[in-house]
Design a protein around this nucleic acid. Structure first.
Lengths: 142, 142
DNA sequence: CATCTTCCCATTGACGCCCATATTAGCCCA
DNA sequence: TGGGCTAATATGGGCGTCAATGGGAAGATG
């Protein structure tokens, strides 16, 4: 499978590390991704992860605008200032830095959620809430 | 990686120095940058830093315009009058001068923000505000 | 001579790399 | 079909190295 699907919750250890679910790691391995582009999501209180090609897609969006415009600068503030490259350790874990904690509210557990071409890190309760709310909205509107 | 990404906040010491995040220093080292071109940003209350090639790029922009035009003169006022060269000390720190403080409002802490081909120094609260505003704009428009 | 820089060294804590244990899932075979 | 046997995943921790920070003292500036 070449998509990020499903979700799982893992514990953060005493050194602040957490294992990326093997399901997701195998998708990354398939496209030979070494460094992950990680960004603070534009919509949800979650950080998103994907291969570097996503950053390049974002940069092409900016590149088509006037570089001195407020719009282009604000967008760069999000995708560059709100993004970082990370790598996993030998065991497929990543360090949950303040960059991630401050934005998501994650403390001791992480919910990994597949999003097709990328996956996200959520504070577990926040994920539950948002998912059940999304379900409710759907039901109400249809 | 060869881009300036992510953001981090460091403290200014009693001598007015602050460490440039190692992440940024390694990008600079990669292109063997010794002296940094520093300018007061055109859209945000932040100072921007990059290698000298950025100044050269700005100067080419001016060079392609009519030297008697108001536009070209205003541009020079910003990139020359609003810019300086700085270097880092042996430990990768820079001195936070009044040139930087007056324009940014920085007092005791600095938020470094990656912007792709350069990085910026912000007053921490100002950065938070501007970034969350940018995020709000995006959500509203989509 | 007083102040501001620059260069050097010390300390503390965080991070990267490596190896150990455990818990689970899958598999083989009698 | 039940009982292990094996492999892979999740998790825990040691230890060396590097980053961030603090401060002394020499050198430059006016």
């Amino acid at each position: 499978m070449n998509r990020f699907l499903s979700h799982a919750t893992n514990r953060i250890d005493s050194k602040g590390r957490v294992s990326v679910p093997s399901m997701f790691r195998s998708v990354l391995a398939r496209s030979a991704v070494e460094e992950l582009y990680v960004w603070q999501d534009f919509v949800f209180p979650a950080v998103s992860m994907a291969g570097p090609e996503v950053l390049e897609r974002f940069e092409r969006m900016i590149g088509s605008q006037d570089p001195f415009s407020l719009e282009a600068n604000k967008m760069s503030l999000l995708i560059h200032g709100g993004g970082v490259f990370m790598k996993l350790d030998g065991e497929g874990r990543l360090l949950v830095t303040d960059f991630i904690r401050d934005f998501t509210g994650i403390t001791d557990k992480v919910t990994f959620a597949g999003r097709g071409d990328h996956f996200q890190l959520w504070e577990p309760a926040a994920f539950e809430d948002m998912q059940s709310q999304a379900r409710k909205d759907r039901t109400a509107s249809s």
